[in-house]
Design a protein around this nucleic acid. Structure first.
Length: 443
RNA sequence: GUGGGUGUAGCUCAGUUGGUUAGAGCGCCAGGUUGUGGCCCUGGAGGUCGUGGGUUCGACUCCCAUCAUUCACCCCA
């Protein structure tokens, strides 16, 4: 019986939403596990919050741009919104549960967030963020800013990535610099500066002048933001700049402290740089800011960024709760690694290690034996449909299952299992006792 | 929100200056006899050529609209 064609709905998902096939999902999940365990190795505590929040909570602070990107809807009388990051929910969380949390509160949070913007290469409307933040009660040492870098560095290394650069800057330093030159709209200036790599110094200079900045100051800005690279070099160059401005001075001081502790964490300038051009991110950052790029895919933007905020939860509590944190854009990171073939096709489409194939009326024995090695920690599956052996072996083949246990009348009679190595094609017969040895060998 | 590209089989794409029954590769299913996969051979299923109009004797091909999708700008993970 064929379904009427008119009633068939074309199976499709919204554009901008990432959906992976099993082969990729397995790799994605492995990355996620790696990130989670690295975060926990530094003592970060897991939380999870609802994907939907009250709009008044989520949008308590937001300025124009974020508000435009928020998925917002009503259900009955409730004004609701999907979270667009994990930091705002964190602010609500710490304010709401202030009384029972222990500070400094070191939390990690891995989850999906939503932004209703036009999809583009490596940009999604729904994507995973993996956040770590450290929230202090009234105070939070700037040493934490250095630790964040260390955590991210470890995480990327554990993920098997070597070619990345964590770029560090400080908002106070920038604000102080701009103030010194009498620039009012430093957000506008930062946006123009940010285009340096894309459009070049000449065009940036033109845009700066067009925005009302004098040519002299534009040159000063270009020269300043050109400072970039080995932190020791940048810091000594910054020391030469004669700007007597509180923000500038304390920003530089913070930057120096952060760098000195980054070194204490055992890192050097091979993956860390100071880059005075990076200053973006949400506007609540007030001190250190971070951005991380893959060296061979700079054009695809930051895969991990964050920073320091003096007062995270001011919209939800009168307590002063300073914090510092960073977020890995896992969907983007995965997508880019996949595009660049850093993650290659494995051919493995299941986590099953052993497939039991019963022939004839041997399913009960196969299930019993499968249970036995499953309890020993081996991912095990039993093929429960009728069919020729060839078809069953092909099933294992297509999914990339490395071992098949063939169970026939002979095996049942002799209380044995015939295990075939799908890569070499070799088969050997094990008694139930000998299976323990087999399990040890493949774990 | 602004601007460009692309819509033909499940996937990747051919399709000659408009002309008969729209093709390939991959994938899928079946077979090449009974408990041995990957390779190979044979056969099969699967498309109202995104949708709706228009031009024409005739449109996958030309024109318009619409939808979908994608890339870029803006902004960001």
């Amino acid at each position: 019986m064929n379904q009427n064609k008119d009633t068939i709905v074309k199976p499709s998902i919204l554009s901008g939403f990432l959906e992976l096939l099993p082969e990729d999902q397995i790799i994605f999940n492995n990355m996620l596990d790696t990130i989670r365990s690295t975060f926990e190795s530094y003592g970060f505590i897991p939380i999870d919050t609802p994907v939907i929040e009250k709009a008044e909570v989520l949008l308590a602070k937001s300025g124009g741009e974020t508000e435009k990107q928020v998925y917002r809807f009503t259900k009955g009388d409730n004004d609701l919104a999907l979270r667009f990051d994990l930091t705002v929910p964190l602010a609500r969380f710490v304010a709401q549960h202030y009384g029972v949390l222990t500070f400094p509160f070191r939390r990690y949070h891995i989850g999906k967030v939503y932004r209703g913007e036009r999809p583009q290469k490596g940009r999604f409307r729904e994507f995973y963020q993996c956040d770590i933040d450290i929230v202090g009660d009234e105070k939070l040492s700037v040493i934490n800013d250095a630790e964040i870098v260390s955590v991210i560095h470890s995480t990327f290394k554990k993920l098997g990535l070597d070619e990345f650069t964590i770029m560090i800057n400080n908002r106070k330093l920038l604000n102080g610099f701009f103030m010194h030159y009498g620039i009012k709209d430093n957000v506008e200036v930062l946006r123009i500066i940010d285009k340096l790599d894309k459009i070049g110094a000449d065009n940036v200079r033109k845009e700066l002048v067009a925005s009302g900045i004098s040519e002299n100051v534009a040159d000063e800005i270009l020269e300043f933001t050109n400072l970039c690279g080995d932190p020791d070099d940048v810091i000594s160059a910054l020391r030469q700049i004669d700007i007597d401005n509180d923000d500038f001075v304390s920003g530089l001081e913070e930057l120096e402290t952060v760098w000195s502790y980054i070194k204490a964490f055992g890192l050097d300038s091979s993956e860390i740089e100071i880059n005075l051009k990076i200053a973006r991110g949400l506007d609540y950052y007030t001190g250190t800011v971070y951005e991380t790029i893959l060296n061979h895919h700079k054009e695809l933007g930051s895969v991990c960024s964050g920073g320091r905020y003096d007062n995270l939860a001011s919209n939800y509590t009168k307590k002063k709760l300073p914090g510092v944190g960073i977020s890995i854009g896992l969907s983007r990171l995965f997508y880019q690694l996949r595009e660049a073939n850093v993650i290659s096709v494995s051919g493995v489409k299941t986590t099953t290690k052993v497939l039991f194939v019963p022939l004839g009326d041997t399913s009960a024995y196969a299930i019993k034996t499968a249970n036995y090695i499953r309890r020993k920690g081996v991912n095990t599956e039993v093929y429960l449909n009728d069919g020729k052996l060839a078809k069953k072996l092909n099933y294992a083949n297509k999914l990339g299952i490395p071992y098949v246990a063939i169970i026939g009348e002979d095996e049942v009679k002799k209380n044995t299992v015939c295990i075939k190595d799908m890569n070499s094609g070799e088969q050997s017969v094990y008694t139930i006792d000998e299976l323990t040895e087999f399990v040890k060998n493949i774990m």
